[in-house]
Amino acid sequence: MQQITRELVELLDLSPLGDDHFQGDSEDLGFPHVFGGQVLGQALMAASRTVENRLCHSLHAYFLRPGNHSMPIDYEVQRVRDGGTFSVRRVIARQEGKEILTGSMSFQVAEQGFEHQLDMPETTPPEELKSEQEWGRLLSEQAPRQLREMMTRERPIEIRPVNLVNPFKPEKHPPHHQNWFRAQGPLPDDPVLHRCLLTYASDFTFLGTSLAPHGRSFLSPGMQVASLDHAIWFHDDFRMDEWLLYDKDSPSAGGGRGFNRGNFFTRDGRLVASTTQEALIRERQR
């Protein structure tokens, strides 16, 4: 495992505070606030710590306030129900006593049942693509000085865009994006960790899908963008240290909000997770 990946795994390894309370550190990725995927991944880890022999199959969360990346985050887990097959947990994330995220997670005992899935869409294999970090080096001269480090820094999750969008010169195109995702270096054989890492990564490059047909990016002047909510359904086991295709589309936008959907596929075409997110995509009036 590379050092930068180990640091991310440690970021998700929360400290117990007793009575189903946990605390996690925050990381500064160069964004104004805490990266939403970090809070989601830590919230899932907190809930998972209170469940035995059951894996998360669905997660639904709302972002309530922007988080401060210079402060730790406290997580309170509420044990809603433990049934014969399913367990439900409610998680509240707080900083300075104020809620920044609330969510519910459902866990299930492994069982067999009917199976079907959508076919994996056609795409370019990751070996033929540049990483976001490589593209960042090529585009860094167009970026303000304070953004150059963010664009070129080492990342624990390698992202390779299939259809690159220049955030400084966005053009209108259909609301459909694809990226390949993979953690840098091998990971432990812990399905909970892999689910938390996918949850963390699923917030990258998601919001921008609904901006694509409008010729805007999160760096466009006058744009106010933020994740409002986030949901994930886990369909099958997977490994985050192997390539996963994140196929995303945005069927609708209106009222200052953009709706996004995504599917994660393995290299051999298995659909292992699905996501949805509504985002604030407001253009400030001049």
Rank of each mutant, 00 (worst) to 15 (best):
F22H: 04
H230C: 05
L139M: 14
V192Q: 12
D82L: 09
E52M: 04
R153E: 09
E122N: 05
E278H: 07
G258W: 11
T5M: 09
H194S: 01
R284G: 13
P16G: 04
R49L: 13
Q78P: 05
L101A: 03
D19R: 12
H69N: 14
V225C: 06
D28A: 03
N260W: 08
L164Y: 12
R286E: 10
A61P: 11
L139F: 15
A61V: 15
I100Q: 02
L55H: 06
W135M: 14
S131V: 01
G215T: 11
D82A: 13
F63W: 01
F86C: 11
S87E: 06
A93G: 10
G185S: 01
L197G: 02
I159G: 08
N179R: 10
L138I: 14
G41A: 06
V162W: 02
L280M: 12
L244I: 07
D25N: 12
D119S: 15
A46E: 03
P174I: 04
N263V: 14
T152S: 02
D119N: 05
Q178P: 03
G256A: 01
H116G: 01
Y62A: 12
R257K: 07
G84A: 09
D119G: 04
A110C: 07
D19G: 05
R148T: 11
D82F: 11
P175T: 02
Q224S: 14
R137W: 05
H214D: 04
V34T: 15
F218P: 06
L244R: 03
D236Y: 07
I100W: 01
S217I: 07
C196N: 07
P144L: 08
R6D: 06
D74L: 13
G258E: 14
G113C: 06
A253V: 09
H173S: 15
P144Q: 05
L8S: 00
F181M: 14
G18L: 02
D19N: 13
L245Y: 02
L219P: 14
D13Y: 08
H194V: 00
M1E: 11
A253N: 09
G185P: 05
R148N: 09
H173D: 12
W180C: 03
M1Y: 08
E134L: 08
G103A: 10
S252H: 12
P191C: 13
L211S: 11
G84Y: 01
P213S: 00
G215M: 10
L55R: 04
P125K: 05
F22I: 07
T50S: 04
G254H: 12
V91I: 15
H176K: 14
V80M: 14
